[in-house]
Design a protein around this nucleic acid. Structure first.
Lengths: 158, 158
DNA sequence: TCACTCACTGAGCACATTGTTCAGTGAACA
DNA sequence: TGTTCACTGAACAATGTGCTCAGTGAGTGA
């Protein structure tokens, strides 16, 4: 579960230059190929690295509008709402949270007008009492993990 | 910017089985290798596919607690706050939004107790007027893109 | 102190894949 | 009609992969 410094360097290296293979990575890190392969296998079976799937940009797909919706759910309807939201492609993620609302989801849409359609799709469902939406204007820090990896690798410096 | 059916199938295939190469993908899709290579190059230069970096799970890294913080910023301090938040590894993403708050960020922490430290780090900064935090309890729909890709590919069925 | 385990190293092998180029084909379009 | 474009199928050398092996050194427990 904890990663050491070599793990951290490997993850950062792969994040910065995903095209390089195991052999090139071993050269960059100054270790044997087998070591890199073993570390990668371990990181993947650990679940630290979930996979190497393509990172798709919704904006480039034609969905440039992002919004966060906070949903308040009627008691006992949570399960139905989840099932419903999971069927909506524009719902990119859904969390249940503490705090004022009960759920929080990330939405995308083709335009501000299209966002209305998506919101209607999302909240037009029995069980949702109230919804408030915040439209994203800028994204100063895009979803990132590298700084956290660096910190995690430094915390248990081998 | 718009993707056709073959692009969609290619992205879905790569998302489901990232380990397969260009050659195997061309076999699965029933097209020539050069076609897959050209499509991939185009999708990447389009920006539709940002890259193939490792998808790291913060929980497996030792940060099992996720929270969303809504921040209200003092007029004119937005730039300073962004710079500050960008230096905090536990801030995984930051957005400026419409609505009640001015910014929204995703945080992770090692524990609920550690979350307090992170929140103090985040909001202990001049320019932040008010902050409200929602701790994530469950994640019924993890961040996903495939359903949206399918829909985008169907919209302009070639 | 003596095994024992574990991770890493460096090497080797057969095999598959990659990057690249080429000419040929068919569809769309002006 | 002629041009452009994407796709095909093939070829080539170069490279990387999966896999195995024996040897080394550090750390652990009896």
């Amino acid at each position: 579960m904890a990663i050491d410094h070599l793990d951290g360097r490997l993850i950062v290296l792969l994040a910065e230059e995903p095209r390089i293979g195991v052999l090139e990575a071993s050269r960059r890190l100054g270790v044997a190929r087998g070591t890199v392969q073993a570390r990668l296998d371990r990181l993947q079976s650990n679940g630290v690295i979930r996979g190497f799937g393509p990172q798709v940009d919704p904006a480039a797909l034609g969905y440039p509008v992002t919004a966060f919706a906070t949903l308040q759910i009627r008691q006992g309807q949570g399960s139905d709402v989840r099932t419903h939201l999971a069927t909506v492609p524009e719902v990119l993620e859904l969390h249940t949270t503490t705090g004022s609302g009960d759920m929080m989801c990330r939405l995308v849409a083709r335009s501000n007008a299209d966002l209305q359609r998506v919101i209607d799709l999302v909240v037009g469902f029995e069980g949702i009492v109230r919804a408030s939406t915040a439209i994203v204007m800028e994204n100063p820090v895009p979803l990132r993990i590298i700084p956290l990896v660096r910190q995690a690798a430094e915390d248990d410096n081998d």
